[in-house]
């Protein structure tokens, strides 16, 4: 936020603004910038997802809108969703039904505050950064339950109950896997975690030691479940629950669910990038090659690689069943993550 505040001060007559407004301006500007960036990233990710799925399935995907490989297709779709009629079914709980998509989105969006995209491009550096992300991103569960309950649809209810159970359960191995990194940095601040990994690829936590590598794997699997991606897409399992908790939604409200889903995907990829892949730092140490590429670009490339793997998994794997989902969480991921904390703690004390 400091860098945003400095930018704002370059605006002529910015000093003339009243104190209350100039105090709010950096917050507002950061939110707008973050939202714009997120919206763009989501549009790109939706397009990428379509292309990846299409090519895995020997199709081409969107090819017409915008010319080159249908790059404008998602923009057109987003416009369509925003312009559609806002349908609220007759028998829903109107207040909850209308609020739910925004709360789901809020949970995803609020976590972006502490993500360090570059050495100076972050909104704020909380000293409990990673804990804040873990806490805030589970907010969306409330929104999902609201959506499922208020829709007055049995499929929505099933979807939301599954989602709640799944997200809450998988928080645990994800958080424990994160703790392995914290053991090494001794700090919960996202910026400190990245700074601890500077100096080339060998300093990334992913390649520091085998425990951290496995912790990355555990976090990646758990994060897939947290964002409801295949093979853990039970809450919106099309063949069973039609569309899960957003069955009754259409138009703009559906678009917000969609946005939240992809924002969550990007969030977990960003967290994994920050924790394990060195955030904005480049693979080649600065002593060998000067750092020409801006930090945010490096960050985005790393995050996109992880997102690509998420998509690749989605279009190759079938879906798990509810009991198997819980089996993997409680009987596989959780013991493994505890063992990893022990191992990593031992390594950190060496």
């Amino acid at each position: 936020m400091e860098s945003v505040a400095q930018l704002l001060e370059k605006i002529p007559k910015y000093d003339a603004l009243p104190e209350t407004i100039s105090a709010l301006m950096p917050i507002l500007a950061s939110s707008v910038i973050l939202f714009a960036m997120l919206a763009l990233a989501v549009l790109f990710m939706v397009w990428l997802e379509r292309k990846v799925s299409a090519h895995i399935q020997d199709r081409l995907g969107p090819m017409v809108v915008g010319g080159w490989h249908g790059w404008a297709q998602t923009i057109a779709d987003a416009l369509k969703l925003l312009l559609k009629e806002d349908i609220v079914p007759a028998s829903v709980d109107r207040v909850l039904f209308k609020m739910a998509p925004f709360i789901v989105f809020l949970g995803a969006f609020a976590a972006y505050v502490v993500l360090p995209f570059g050495s100076s491009s972050f909104v704020t550096d909380l000293n409990i950064g990673i804990l804040y992300i873990v806490a805030v991103s589970s907010l969306s569960v409330i929104g999902i339950i609201m959506a499922g309950w208020s829709s007055n649809n049995k499929y929505s209810l099933y979807g939301s109950m599954r989602a709640a159970a799944q997200i809450v359960s998988y928080e645990i191995p994800a958080a424990v896997a994160i703790m392995t990194v914290v053991l090494f940095t001794g700090s919960l601040s996202m910026v400190d975690i990245v700074r601890a990994q500077t100096g080339g690829i060998q300093n990334w936590f992913l390649f520091r030691n085998p425990f951290l590598f496995l912790a990355f794997v555990v976090y990646f699997i758990a994060s897939l479940a947290e964002v409801n991606r295949t093979p853990f897409d039970l809450p919106e399992a099309e063949s069973e629950l039609v569309a899960g908790y957003h069955t009754e939604y259409s138009g703009m409200r559906f678009a917000f669910f969609f946005l939240a889903e992809y924002a969550n995907m990007f969030l977990v990829a960003s967290v994994a990038t920050t924790l394990f892949l060195g955030g904005w730092t480049q693979a080649v140490p600065a002593s060998i090659m000067p750092q020409i590429v801006p930090g945010p670009v490096v960050f985005f490339v790393k995050a996109l690689i992880l997102i690509f793997i998420q998509m690749w998994m989605r279009w190759s794997l079938p879906r798990l069943r509810v009991d198997q989902l819980m089996y993997i969480n409680w009987k596989v991921l959780l013991p493994v993550s505890f063992a990893l904390v022990l191992g990593a703690g031992w390594m950190a004390t060496l």
Partner: peptide, 21 residues
């Protein structure tokens, strides 16, 4: 098996598409 599934799916990323525009 997950890795082998993903490998065969990934290989299809590079096979020509059969779509007719």
């Amino acid at each position: 098996t997950i890795v082998s599934s993903m490998a065969i799916a990934g290989r299809h990323l590079f096979t020509p598409s059969v779509t007719l525009q």
